[in-house]
Write a protein that binds this DNA or RNA. Sequence first.
DNA 1: TACATAGTGTTATATTATAACAATTTAAAT
DNA 2: ATTTAAATTGTTATAATATAACACTATGTA
Lengths: 130, 130
Amino acid sequence: MDKMQNLSKNQQIIFDLIDKSSEPMKAYSILHNVQKKGIKAPLQVYRALDKLVEIGKIHKIESRNAFIACHNSSCQVSKATAFSICEICEKVTEISSASLSKYLTNFKDKDGMKYSKYNLEFFGLCKKCR
Amino acid sequence: MDKMQNLSKNQQIIFDLIDKSSEPMKAYSILHNVQKKGIKAPLQVYRALDKLVEIGKIHKIESRNAFIACHNSSCQVSKATAFSICEICEKVTEISSASLSKYLTNFKDKDGMKYSKYNLEFFGLCKKCR
DNA sequence: TACATAGTGTTATATTATAACAATTTAAAT
DNA sequence: ATTTAAATTGTTATAATATAACACTATGTA
């Protein structure tokens, strides 16, 4: 229920690293950064990443194969995510818009079907790069 | 300007294959399927895929690393895409909703920024799998 | 013609991710 | 406290996805 639930050792190490990062981090970059802490193999990283995504502490930026910490206190799990991505500097920001999430959560396709989950990635130029 | 523009030999072979497929196709599955037509190396496939995505004849399903033909006559280029993905059978459908594309194209984040491009993936269960 | 652009073919390699198996830790339930 | 189940860890190997670099060929067009 609470995002402060205990993480395992590897999960905590990897979450801390991603959380401190100002940019999305890639799995093998994470690996290089945590080898000094005893995490030696890709699988150790991927397992922690899978779990952290599952519980909503981090999100995967699918178009970049990279991971960022969740900064949206209302998302316990990664089921309704939206990001803006700068095509020049690759800065990624999580979008927290109540109207957007409401619109997408309630969206029905032409068969009247609603979806339990979505991921939205916007692309453009960030303030600095414009 | 027109989607009927001429494709190169490899592009046409690969587009035809994807277009005939009822499911998203992965790059190496495409490769296996076109080896009899003389396309032998991954790079030949990826180059054709890159171009086909660029001109909007196909789209990449980012969460699945797979490609489907565009069936939305209004999208010359892959700049505003939305898909539904069944989490059981992996069926993928391109969503063509004028109101959705209007909403997302006009969406402004809290800094008032609009985006030139987006990709949205909805997840749930399709009719058959419910 | 000559020039630029796009496409092709090829080998090698980089990057991203999972399979399979064994051991250990943790939490909870008895 | 003890057993049990679930989660986590460690490890080696390998699968799957994607790009670098280089040489050559085709196509359009000035």
